[in-house]
Design a protein around this nucleic acid. Structure first.
Length: 849
DNA sequence: TTAGGGTTAG
């Protein structure tokens, strides 16, 4: 299959609609004028009018004859008006007419096509001896169409045993029945038979069956395409089938190429063709071509068609440039008779677009009120809307509805429920929903693994990861990305390296998402060298790869490298996004590059069209504030185009703390508390500010205020990973089995570093106690305990990696520099803000933090 | 009347 350049602006030479190609039925002369009118309406395709006429006739007690009923049914099947077909069947049942095999076969076909295979089966069973070859054929086809391959093959065999020799339709259906992997060998036998009998040479339907056997059963698009190319006769259906299958199996570009070939070969696209190729446009986000196809649909009078409509809704939702859902909604509103597909397409469009979750829920309510029964896709998308809105109670009500309709154990519904709980932090409920799910698929596992990894429970995430491998499911890129992100959050490099080894074993080492997650993991675990190695080894880097490594260098304080990489990224033509600029500005902030920061901030919109958002303003406040330009920072805040949020003020308050400016700090704290009255961080920062300037009465007032408001300060803690186990320490912690050795080591360190010139900085004790007590308290800080434990538990050759949930204390920073000198060890500390690489008495932050 | 279509969770 050769891929042509993508047609984005090409004008397609569509042939004009050919009215003679639509099916016309002969008129019958009938004594009843109403019957004549009915036949005319059926022939003209005015089926809603026809049903009114039929109802009127029935009301008058004058039923049309069987031939007219049969005509009506065939037209309903032909135009896919299944609801109307069902109504015709109801009237037919009440007519007491004796049904012939043609009419009964039509009914089988009607119910087969609208997915009601039970009804089709029941009609077939009641036919008894009036069954003919077409009835059998229709039944084989019905089972094959409704994903019941085994039953289709059984019926096929049953038919032969009943003395019927299969015709080409039957072979086509039997071949399609082999469209799942389990029937590959049966498919081979039928294929051999079809070739031998010469059916393939003479019939297009058999070719269609073969195409599906290869594509659906084996994922073998190449063989399917060979069948297509060798077909002695083609028509619009065969072209459409091949286009649709290419699209469905991930070759949207090839599907569009083939569609162009079809048009150039003079075939006229119908509702099926347009549906397939519009879906291909949606997948490739080709809005212009999608719009051309939309105008074709209008020209062919297909805008009211629900299927074409669904594809257009999907295409507009995926391709809209300005994030607007108006074009999609317009298509939806034009569809007259909504069914479950059209409602679901619109709900899904809203949910996928993001920011339209309320609209999605409104539509779900609208759907229920019009008595359209939702399906598993509807529930899946609606639950996702609830998760986005954090509307757990509504989500639970929606799920109860799904339970009542029997969809609770369908994977995508149950997985959406798991995801909804996981995203709301209700990990236990997510786990319960996972446990009761009878048949879990990879997505079920990935969802719950991601939930554990996000909630820092890497042990449980690993147990489930092993289950995936034990069951032979094969972890995906998503599984690895979640596990790596979990390892990165805790900073367990040992775990991260183990996962890296499993990535290599799984064959996913070149996967872009996995590589991006590896870069982030190594960088966040303190090993920027390995992060850079992964980045260098990548074959194809995207903006996330570049942003991840730039963020890594920025956090580690290597601003020069970060900015060099940023320029290299621009040279390679990669467009920076909002996150890239957060990385670039934070690189400037971590080393105090005020002018460079201004330069980047000013050019982000003018040169690359990235509109600064709150985080970028906060970065600039950080750059200005930490460099000591507090008044410039406050001027900057006042000049912002929108009201500064708590993040901006928190950043400014941090700078006030570093530069000891109590007055501005008080103002900042007031602004934070105004916006987030229950956030303890502002109170703590302000209290620390008072403590550092020895205003103990104020410290005590703040503590009282916090107590009254029941605000609990996040306890500071530090941890190190030793032999794949995380050891966590709080202030003054004595709970570790090696506590005695740790405190002996701390005592020795204290003596040794004092000899080298360390003087405890008692300003960092935030309690009003005497000096001796203050010094003792300093040596109980969690980061010092973690360093001491690292020293006594690890090889002298390896760096010690310490992690802290809050910012590192100033005295600990100074003490650890002396410890690195006294012991000759490299100590890397990751705090809430950045990395400190401490070696031979120096820190990579150059005291700028 | 028997070959082709639409929406899906991490």
């Amino acid at each position: 299959m050769q891929s042509l350049p993508l047609p984005t602006t090409l004008k397609i030479p569509f042939p004009s609609p050919n009215p003679s190609s639509s099916l016309q039925f002969p008129s019958f002369t009938n004594p009843n004028p109403l019957t004549d009118r009915l036949i005319q309406e059926i022939n003209n395709g005015r089926l809603h009018k026809a049903i009114s006429t039929l109802e009127h006739m029935v009301h008058q007690g004058s039923h049309p004859d069987l031939q007219t009923y049969s005509l009506f049914l065939k037209k309903c099947i032909r135009t896919r008006s299944f609801d109307l077909g069902t109504l015709v069947h109801e009237k037919l049942t009440r007519s007491n007419l004796q049904l012939d095999s043609v009419t009964l076969n039509s009914l089988i076909s009607l119910y087969s096509k609208c997915g009601q295979w039970e009804k089709a089966t029941s009609i077939f069973q009641r036919m008894g001896s009036s069954r003919d070859l077409i009835s059998w054929s229709a039944m084989v086809s019905c089972f094959a169409n409704n994903n019941m391959g085994f039953r289709a093959l059984l019926t096929f065999v049953d038919m032969i045993e009943n003395g019927y020799y299969p015709n080409e339709y039957c072979f086509a259906a039997a071949t399609r029945a082999c469209s799942s992997a389990e029937f590959v060998s049966v498919g081979d036998s039928i294929f051999g038979f079809v070739i031998k009998t010469g059916y393939f040479e003479s019939d297009v339907c058999v070719g269609c069956g073969l195409i599906d056997m290869f594509v659906k059963g084996r994922g073998d698009l190449v063989s399917a395409f060979k069948v297509f190319e060798k077909m002695p006769e083609r028509n619009a259906v065969t072209w459409t089938l091949m286009i649709t299958r290419l699209m469905q199996f991930g070759c949207a570009g090839e599907a569009i190429d083939l569609f162009l070939d079809m048009i150039l070969s003079g075939y006229e696209p119908d509702r099926f063709t347009l549906s397939g190729v519009i879906s291909a446009c949606a997948n490739m986000e080709l809005l212009l071509l999608g719009q051309q196809l939309h105008s074709q649909a209008i020209k062919h009078g297909l805008t009211l068609d629900r299927c074409v409509g669904c594809c257009l809704i999907n295409m507009y939702a995926k391709c809209s440039v300005d994030g607007s859902m108006c074009p999609a909604r317009k298509v939806f509103d034009q569809i007259l008779d909504h069914n479950v597909f059209s409602w679901t397409a619109m709900i899904t469009g809203y949910v996928q677009k993001g920011g339209y979750d309320e609209e999605a829920l409104d539509l779900f309510r609208g759907m229920i009120s019009t008595h359209v029964i939702p399906n598993h896709f509807t529930f899946s998308s609606t639950l996702k809307a609830c998760a986005n809105l954090a509307a757990l109670r509504i989500g639970e009500q929606v799920f109860t509805h799904a339970v009542k309709l029997g969809f609770s154990s369908v994977n995508c519904v149950a997985n959406s429920l798991i995801s909804m709980y996981a995203r709301s932090g209700r990990i236990d409920d997510a786990r319960k929903a996972f446990d009761i799910l009878f048949e879990k698929n990879l997505i079920s596992y990935n969802t719950v693994i991601d939930a554990y990894a996000t909630n820092l429970n890497s042990e449980e995430a690993f147990v489930l990861f092993n289950e995936i491998e034990d069951q032979g499911m094969g972890a995906s890129a998503f599984t690895f990305a979640s596990l790596l992100s979990g390892a990165a959050s805790i900073g367990t490099i040992g775990k991260g390296e183990q996962i890296h080894a499993r990535v290599i074993k799984s064959g996913l080492k070149l996967n872009q998402s996995v590589c991006n997650a590896l870069i982030s993991m190594y960088s966040r675990c303190g090993n920027i060298e390995s992060a850079f190695q992964v980045f260098e080894d990548m074959e194809h880097r995207n903006v996330i790869s570049w942003t991840s490594i730039i963020t890594g260098f920025a956090k580690h304080g290597f601003a020069t490298q970060a900015l060099e990489l940023f320029h290299k990224m621009l040279q390679e033509g990669i467009r920076p996004n909002e996150v890239t600029y957060i990385a670039v500005l934070s690189a400037c902030s971590h080393v105090g590059l005020v002018n460079e920061g201004w330069k980047q901030f000013k050019s982000m919109y003018t040169e690359h069209g990235v509109i600064p958002r709150m985080e970028h303003y906060a970065c600039m406040v950080d750059i200005l504030g930490r460099s000591g330009s507090l008044s410039e920072a406050i001027q900057f805040i006042n000049s912002m185009p929108y009201k500064a949020d708590a993040l901006v003020w928190r950043t400014f308050l941090g700078a006030c703390r570093v530069h000891g400016n109590v007055e501005l700090g008080k103002h900042a704290a007031k602004m934070i508390i105004e916006q987030e009255p229950h956030d303890p961080a502002a109170y703590i920062l302000l209290s620390n500010l008072y403590a550092s300037t020895s205003q103990w009465d104020e410290v005590s007032n703040i503590r009282k205020a916090m107590k009254e408001k029941n605000l609990i300060k996040e306890a500071g803690c530090s941890w190190v990973e030793v032999e794949n186990k995380v050891h966590k320490f709080y202030v003054g912690d004595t709970s570790h089995p090696k506590a005695e050795e740790i405190y002996d080591e701390l005592q020795n360190l204290s003596l040794n570093i004092k000899k080298l010139g360390y003087v405890p900085n008692l300003d960092f004790v935030l309690h009003d106690v005497d000096e001796e007590q203050k010094e003792k308290l300093l040596f109980q800080h969690s980061e010092k305990i973690a360093v001491a434990f690292g020293l006594i538990s690890t090889s002298k050759m390896k760096p010690i990696r310490v992690f802290k949930n809050l910012r590192i204390c100033g005295d600990c920073h100074s003490a650890i520099k002396y410890i690195s000198m006294a012991t000759g060890r490299e100590i890397i500390v990751r705090d809430a803000n950045r990395f400190h690489h401490i070696k031979d008495g120096r820190c990579s932050c150059n005291e700028y933090w």
